[in-house]
Design a protein around this nucleic acid. Structure first.
Length: 608
RNA sequence: GCCAAAGUGGCUCAGGGGUAGAGCAAUUCACUCGUAAUGAAUAGGUCGCGGGUUCGAUUCCCGCCUUUGGCUCCA
């Protein structure tokens, strides 16, 4: 068997052992649902008479070891649907699974010993003793909904790390520990980039160092988009609900919006504010109710609509970096990855149908250029027409064909995922997914075709034949939200950002106070060259200063003393090594910094 | 929203029914130093918020807030 196959069999078998252990501990009334293998092990879902907590883990693990040591045979049996339904008549989830199996499906069951049976396709080990060498550990327990549906039973899911050997488990746990060190929430605090406070749940406070980085990203984005013919607009942060009624957000997205109720004037007051200080009553259904924007598109439509447009003007590209607010359900927030306030490198491009292909191609080219700058790899996903689509099928078909042709050309047939029927109701889309340190995928870039908003806002352009036609809108973002992207790259670089992006690029440390003058001169020359410099001219031990700047992960720390001042040189301490480059000419160093900034170099040169 | 866990000085964390402790950071003094932790002293916390039990709660109980992991992988 292939190594991967072995791993699958191990994990799958261990899931059954887990179930058997849980049943032995919690009794026969346990309802067991499903137990697939996953990335680093497996899990099993149960309904249990009481909740499992961390304190229960050792007992479960011990029971699993005990079961494995029984050297029980695993026997496979093929049975009829009726036999299966009878056998699992007290197991509601198994029962449902059997009912849902296709009519011609072979139904197989596995006995582990003679007191535990599970519905399963297999394959498994033949005897528990094959699992002697397997290494496993309960990872955690969480709630999970039966079949992922929140309206159905809430199950307790027990996760297991599972590997064929102890060494592999150990290696995995070490990897996990390293990954946790990369956590952007930790690094963000350590590097003083951003913070979160209860005064604004899920909304980052950007601190001086972090805000420099943020702005560098926006600067880079604007530079690239400017070169690709984008024009930037900015629009109101809160809009009257009239806008959201037109766009459809009021009907479809209200739960995700922060709403500012208006003052009623004889309208029903549903959310009355009590007390003497607030005699007016605020209500969501008041005419002057406003809402913070969760998306930029409606205002972009308004901007387009202000005047007539000729086909000669298209494509029109309105990019936008405004702040967006989306209200999330509690429990959905996650550091910078999922926030309630963020900015996107957003854009809405208005095109004619025959411009779609070239335009999307250009978007993908921009995405490639940007992601390459960070050395980040992504996975493309193509989502096609859903059942509740809007518009006519011909438009959909041709739009999907255009997108598919671009994806095939770019990534090759089969090198991107297709999610049939997963598109938005207003159009098909391409999403670009990037992994965080823990391997979780987050959607960053997105390209969406939209036939709906132009319709809702009655957008037109005058075509060659003089007829008024409806443009198609392309929504797209490459970084996605800057917040999320910064989270991703913080973990990717472990806080050691590329030179061009690091909040401060060079730190200057004089050896003694008498070297302050020269240190200042060095700092001034670098600043003049557009380099972000910080220096410490206080009367403190130079070692302490170096330590402080190293902790902030400044790429280059310059130490200057008698020798450097005399020779107009600097001694360079390079991030990521203990290397010190002595006697580097100041001019030469300034030139290097300018080059690194101009080229947005990914790697930090270790030699100068 | 749901399941589980957590919240103690700026940061990292210990503690535990009798009103709190360490390291780092900060401040002061000494050291003036050639590339990641000099020494000494000082200051800093109504232990997330509200309620309950108790003579007494940061500790136990309840509610809320915030945060973390999971709720996608389908016998």
């Amino acid at each position: 068997m292939e190594k991967e196959e072995v791993l699958k069999v191990y994990r799958h078998s261990l899931a059954h052992i887990l179930a058997k252990a849980v049943i032995e501990i919690y009794g026969k009334e346990v309802q067991y649902a499903i137990g697939p293998e996953i990335e680093d092990g497996c899990y099993y879902d149960f309904v249990l008479p009481r909740t499992v907590t961390e304190e229960d883990f050792p007992a479960i693990e011990e029971k699993m070891h005990e079961i494995i040591k029984r050297r029980e045979d695993w026997t496979r049996k093929v049975i009829s649907r009726d036999e299966a339904l009878e056998l699992f008549k007290d197991q509601k989830f198994k029962h449902e699974l059997i009912v849902d199996l296709p009519a011609d499906e072979t139904i197989s069951i596995y006995y582990t010993g003679d007191d535990y049976v599970d519905l399963c396709r297999g394959p498994h080990v033949d005897n528990s003793q094959e699992l002697f060498s397997a290494a496993f550990k309960i990872k955690n327990v969480s709630g999970a909904y039966w079949r992922g549906d929140e309206k159905r039973d809430q199950l307790q899911r027990i996760y297991l790390f599972a590997f064929p050997s102890k060494d592999e488990l150990k290696a995995h746990l070490a990897w996990l520990k390293e990954a946790q060190e990369r956590d952007h929430k930790k690094i963000g605090t350590a590097l003083d980039l951003f913070m979160f406070r209860e005064t604004a749940p899920g909304m980052a406070y950007w601190l001086p160092r972090g805000w420099i980085l943020y702005q560098e990203l926006m600067k880079y984005s604007r530079e690239i988009q400017g070169a690709h013919g984008y024009t930037e607009i900015s629009a109101p942060l809160i809009n009257n609900k009239k806008l959201w009624l037109i766009s459809g957000h009021w009907a479809h997205y209200q739960n995700n919006m922060f709403i500012v109720p208006g003052i009623t004037k004889g309208v029903n007051a549903t959310d009355a504010v009590q007390g003497e200080e607030a005699p007016e009553q605020y209500a969501v259904d008041a005419e002057d109710t406003m809402a913070a924007k969760p998306m930029n598109c409606p205002n972009a439509m308004m901007s387009y609509k202000r005047t007539m447009h000729s086909y000669k003007e298209l494509p029109i590209r309105y990019s936008e970096y405004d702040v967006l607010h989306r209200k999330e359900k509690s429990g959905q927030m996650n550091g910078l990855f999922r926030v309630q306030e963020f900015r996107q490198d957003d854009d809405h491009t208005f095109v004619t149908p025959d411009q779609i292909k070239d335009e999307i191609k250009d978007v993908i080219a921009i995405a490639d250029e940007i992601y390459k700058t960070f050395g980040i790899t992504y996975r493309a996903e193509f989502s096609t027409r859903p059942d509740d689509f809007m518009g006519d099928i011909e438009s959909w078909n041709s739009a999907e064909a255009s997108l598919k042709a671009i994806l095939d050309e770019k990534y090759g047939d089969g090198n991107y995922e297709i999610n049939e029927g997963d598109g938005a109701f207003y159009g098909p889309k391409i999403d670009l997914q990037i992994k965080d340190a823990l391997g979780r995928e987050w959607q960053c870039g997105t390209v969406q075709l939209d036939f709906q908003l132009p319709h809702n806002f009655e957008l037109t352009f005058v075509d060659k034949d003089g007829a008024q036609k409806m443009p198609i809108v392309i929504h797209r973002a490459i970084f996605g939200s800057f917040e999320r992207f910064i989270g991703i790259i913080t973990e990717h670089f472990k806080g050691a950002f590329p030179f061009w992006l690091n909040p401060y690029q060079v730190a200057v440390v004089p050896i003694r106070p008498e070297h302050n003058e020269y240190a200042q001169k060095v700092a001034d020359e670098l600043t003049k060259a557009g380099v972000r410099v910080e220096s410490d001219l206080t009367d403190v031990n130079m070692r302490d200063k170096i330590k402080k700047f190293k902790q902030m992960k400044d790429p280059y720390i310059l130490v200057v003393g008698d020798k450097e001042a005399a020779e107009n040189t600097v001694s360079v301490n390079v991030r990521g090594s203990n290397k010190q480059l002595q006697g580097v000419a100041l001019d030469k160093f300034v030139e290097l910094c300018k080059k690194l900034n101009a080229e947005r170099t990914l790697e930090l040169p270790q030699e100068i």
